[in-house]
Amino acid sequence: MAVGERDAHTGHMTTGHEWNGIKELNTPVPKPVYFFLAATALFSVVYWLLMPAWPTGSSYTKGLLGIDQRQTVAEKLAAASLDRASWTARIAGESFEAIRADPQLMTIVRETGHTLFGDNCAACHGAKAAGGPGYPNLAEASWLWGGSPEAIEETIRVGINSAHPDTRVSQMPAFGRDQILDRDRILEVVAYVRSLSPSGEPAADAGVLAAGRQVFLENCASCHGESGAGNTEFGAPDLTDGSWIHGGSLDAVFRAVYGGQQGLMPAWEGRLSPLDRKMLVLYLLDLRSTEN
């Protein structure tokens, strides 16, 4: 190499070249650079020996430890499920009442249920299970299919109007669109239905209400019951509890009666384990008892 001049500040020689005023010092490579190159290379070689690393054409080196990420996660999952076995076995085996009476188990149910519900159900039923337009309030309203833990468990397993072979099926007929009732009759029954709620809607004219009641008894009572308190056999909602799936405004109720409704609750069998589903039932029941 050409010999340059000595740089006064550092005492090192330059390489003797200059590019538009830029020079370079011929400073030797600092020792730590070689050290860290060697250290990281050594680390890599060891890692390559232990883990799957180099392709060999139609296969690859599997590594001395025989580790594979899929196997690893499977083992982790299995171990985690074993870790949980102390309480999962009890939740799977014991009755709903027994579990609800056990504060320790219920702490776990609350924690787990929060996340399970948040990741799977909250999209429709809301983070606090309070429902939303089209989706029932699970924290307060009367149960569509009955409030027994078993009924709720079944709903979650098979869904409502879902693709599951055992799905629960329910449908509110379209009285207006299918010309079962004319517009005036619908307006009457809507007024009547709205008057059943405790929300204190300004009561309509007594004549209208009486007419509406008549329409109701003839057309609706078969599903919603004479008092309008719903029927858990058909999943027909309670129309007197002040909680509405599709909204309680004149408009919304009219729409429900005119065009019908058929909500779809997905089936969770296949996506959530029986244990998860049972915990969700417990979580919902618990939510309700602590809300009130």
Binding site: F43, M51, Y60
Partner: peptide, 29 residues
Amino acid sequence: HYTALPQWVQTLGMTFSVMLLVPSWASAG
């Protein structure tokens, strides 16, 4: 990392990234 890409490729990516720190810091230095 941890995706459906075979793990051997991930190993190579990781180890070379670690070694890469040396020339990178050499430039910064």
